[in-house]
Simulated assay, not measured.
Amino acid sequence: MVKKVISTDKAPAAIGPYVQGVDLGNMLFASGQIPLDPVTGQMATSIEEQTKQSLANVKAIVTVAGYQINNIVKTTIFLADMNDFAAVNAIYESFFTENNAAFPARSCVQVAKIPKDAKVEIEVIAVK
């Protein structure tokens, strides 16, 4: 098994002892993406904009690893407030629709706290 570390400046750099993603050749594990803008390091305040940025960061990692959005088979969404579920769901649905991708399996849970006080964090697994 060849393990390749995935790194791109089109997604925020890791803020701890981990990597943006690990590619096993036919399977990609992308670390959870909070909504930091990779250029400015800033974070929007609305849950909608935070969700869009988290998904843009996911897309950057998936793409640089040579996968497509349609290769995503599993997502996990961490929310600071489950009351944001409907708003996140709408953005999430449009992300996969706009990228002509099938919806993956998914878990969505509320957590006590997300790094940098983000409202959302999204991680994915993709398979070729």
Rank of each mutant, 00 (worst) to 15 (best):
L55K: 12
L79Q: 05
N71A: 09
V62E: 01
A60P: 03
V64H: 03
F85T: 13
A65F: 11
K74D: 12
Q53V: 02
V58N: 11
T75N: 13
I69M: 14
M82S: 09
V64R: 06
K74S: 12
Q68K: 15
I69N: 09
K59A: 07
I77A: 07
I69R: 10
A60W: 01
L79C: 06
G66D: 10
N83H: 14
V73P: 01
L79R: 05
D81Q: 06
D81H: 06
T51A: 06
L79G: 04
N70E: 14
N83V: 03
N70M: 04
Q68W: 03
K52T: 03
F78W: 03
V73R: 12
T76S: 14
K59V: 01
D84V: 01
V62G: 02
T51G: 02
V58H: 02
D84C: 07
D81V: 02
A60V: 00
K74P: 03
D81E: 11
I77M: 14
L79W: 05
T63A: 11
L55S: 08
N71E: 04
L79Y: 00
A56L: 10
V73G: 07
I61S: 09
Y67S: 10
I72H: 06
T51D: 03
V62T: 08
Y67W: 10
G66W: 11
Q68Y: 00
Y67N: 12
V58A: 10
I77H: 01
K74E: 12
Y67T: 11
A56C: 07
Y67P: 11
G66F: 09
K74F: 14
N71C: 06
L55H: 10
D81K: 02
A56V: 04
G66E: 14
N57S: 09
V73I: 15
V64L: 09
V64P: 05
V73S: 14
F78A: 07
N70G: 12
V62C: 02
N70S: 15
M82W: 00
F85D: 05
I69P: 05
M82K: 13
K59W: 01
N71T: 05
G66A: 13
I77R: 03
A56E: 14
A60Y: 00
I72N: 02
T51F: 00
A80W: 00
Q68L: 10
Q53N: 09
T75K: 07
T75F: 04
A60N: 05
F85P: 03
Y67M: 10
Q53E: 11
T75P: 00
T76E: 13
A56H: 08
L79S: 12
T51N: 03
F78P: 01
T75M: 13
A60M: 03
V58L: 13
I77D: 04
M82V: 07
N83P: 00
S54Q: 13
F78D: 02
T51C: 00
I72S: 06
V58D: 02
V64M: 08
A65N: 09
F85N: 13
A65R: 08
N70A: 14
N83D: 15
T63P: 08
V64Q: 13
T51P: 00
V62K: 02
F85M: 14
N70H: 13
T51I: 02
